[in-house]
Nucleic acid binder design. Structure first.
Length: 352
DNA sequence: TCTGGGGTCCTCTGTCGA
DNA sequence: TCTGTCGACAGAGGACCC
C-alpha cells in the first residue's frame, strides 16, 4: 500500500472544553470534571488544572487536595454525546472513511484526498469556528503513528510524521507512550532493563519472547517500531453491554446486593430492549474491598434481553459466588449480542 | 493515594464430543 | 469397548483504552 495517509483527530480536554463553551466565565481557571461521591475519579482536567498535577483517572479527593481552588463540575455525558455528534458530523463531511473512537477521537483515512495536510488544517479551523472547540491532529502512514503524533504537541497540535520519523523522534521516550503498552507491561519491560521505545525496538526477539511469549513479544516490538497496518474501520461491532456501580461504602448484606443487582439489570435491559439487541451470555462482576475483581458468567441456549430473563440468571450467579468479603463494586453484563429476530420483536410488541 | 464506568481483546484452563 | 488426541467453546482473570 503505497503512500497510505491516516489522520488521528483528538479533541483537546474535550469534556472541560464543552463545559467552558456553556460557561465561558470559567475560562482561564482550573476546571476539573469529576464525579461527586467519595470514590469518584477525575474524568478530565483543564490545562490550568493539569499544572497542579491533576490528571485523568486520579481520585477526585486527591485532585481537591492538589487544587483546592479548582472548579469541580459533575460530568454531563448526555450533553457531551450531543456535542460529540456535532463534531463528528463536521468531520464526516470532510472524509469518506471515519472511525470514531469514544466521544472525542477519530481516525480518518486520507488516502483519496489530493492535499491531505491542507484538508486537515481546514478541518481543524472549521471545528474551532463552528463548535468553539480545539483539537490536535496527527498524520502518518498508519493509525499508530497518527495517534502518537496527535498526542505529541497538545493542545492545538498539528504533527506529521513518517514511520522512520516517529521511531527517531520517540526513541528516547518511555515505552508507555504508545497505545497498547500499559503500566503493567511497562513494569515488566523495566524488569528486563528496557525503559525506552528505542531499546524495545532494538531488543533481541528471543529476549522478548522468553519474557512475554513469542506472540506478545513480537507485538510489543512492532509497536516500538511503529509498524501497524490495521485498517480504519467505519463500524465497530458491539459485542457486549454492561452496567456497574461502585458503592460509596462497601456492602456486606446479600439482600442489599441483590437489590442493587436488580436495579442494574433493569437499566441494562431497558437499553437492550430499546436497541432491539439481545445476548446469550449473562455475567456479573464483583469487586471486593481488597480490590480483587471476580466475574461469573452463564451462557444460555437462547439469547435474551428482558429483565425477567436476565435478572434470575444474574441473581443465581451472585448467590453462587457468595462474596467472601465486603463488596465495593457490582456489575452486570450481557454478551454475545445480536439483533433481536423479527419473532422476538413481535413478542416484544405484543407485550407492550 | 487508594483507585469510575463502559467497553474490547487476549490468555489460560477445563470440558466435551468427534 | 477403551483410550488418547484435537478442536471448539465456555468461563475466569487481566491488561488496556477512552
Amino acid at each position: 500500500m503505497l503512500g497510505r495517509c491516516v489522520a488521528h483527530l483528538d479533541m483537546d480536554a474535550f469534556y472541560v472544553s464543552v463545559e467552558l463553551r456553556r460557561r465561558p466565565e470559567l475560562r482561564g481557571r482550573a476546571v476539573i470534571v469529576a464525579g461527586g461521591g467519595p470514590r469518584a475519579v477525575v474524568t478530565t482536567a483543564s490545562y490550568e488544572a493539569r499544572r497542579f498535577g491533576v490528571g485523568s483517572a486520579m481520585p477526585a479527593a486527591r485532585a481537591r487536595r492538589l487544587c483546592p481552588d479548582g472548579v469541580f463540575l459533575t460530568p454531563d455525558f448526555a450533553y457531551y454525546r450531543q456535542v460529540s455528534a456535532e463534531v463528528m458530523a463536521i468531520v464526516r463531511a470532510s472524509v469518506e472513511t471515519l472511525e470514531v473512537v469514544g466521544l472525542d477521537e477519530a481516525y480518518l483515512e486520507l488516502g483519496n484526498l489530493p492535499a491531505p495536510h491542507a484538508a486537515m488544517r481546514r478541518l481543524a479551523a472549521a471545528l474551532e469556528q463552528r463548535t468553539g472547540l480545539g483539537c490536535s491532529i496527527g498524520i502518518g502512514p498508519s493509525k499508530l503513528v497518527a495517534k502518537v503524533a496527535s498526542d505529541a504537541e497538545k493542545p492545538r497540535g498539528f504533527v506529521v510524521l513518517s514511520q522512520a520519523g516517529a521511531r527517531a523522534r520517540f526513541a528516547g521516550a518511555p515505552c508507555g507512550l504508545v497505545p497498547g503498552i500499559g503500566p503493567k507491561t511497562v513494569e515488566r519491560l523495566r524488569g528486563s532493563r528496557i525503559d525506552t521505545l528505542g531499546k524495545l525496538a532494538a531488543a533481541p526477539a528471543e529476549v522478548l519472547a522468553a519474557r512475554f511469549g513469542s506472540r506478545l513479544g513480537a507485538e510489543l516490538q512492532r509497536l516500538a517500531r511503529f509498524e501497524d497496518d490495521s485498517p480504519v474501520t467505519q463500524q465497530r461491532k458491539v459485542v457486549s453491554e454492561s452496567r456497574e456501580t461502585t458503592f460509596d461504602y462497601d456492602i456486606t448484606r446479600p439482600e442489599q446486593l441483590e437489590q442493587v443487582l436488580a436495579a442494574l439489570v433493569d437499566r441494562l435491559c431497558t437499553a437492550l430492549v430499546q436497541q432491539r439487541r439481545r445476548g446469550r451470555t449473562i455475567g456479573i462482576k464483583v469487586r471486593l474491598d481488597d480490590f480483587s475483581t471476580h466475574t461469573r458468567a452463564r451462557t444460555l441456549a437462547e439469547p435474551v434481553s428482558s429483565a425477567d430473563r436476565v435478572g434470575p440468571v444474574a441473581v443465581g450467579l451472585l448467590r453462587r459466588f457468595s462474596a467472601p468479603r465486603p463488596v465495593r463494586l457490582l456489575g452486570v453484563r450481557v454478551a454475545g449480542l445480536e439483533p433481536a429476530s423479527s419473532e422476538t420483536e413481535a413478542q416484544l410488541a405484543l407485550s407492550l
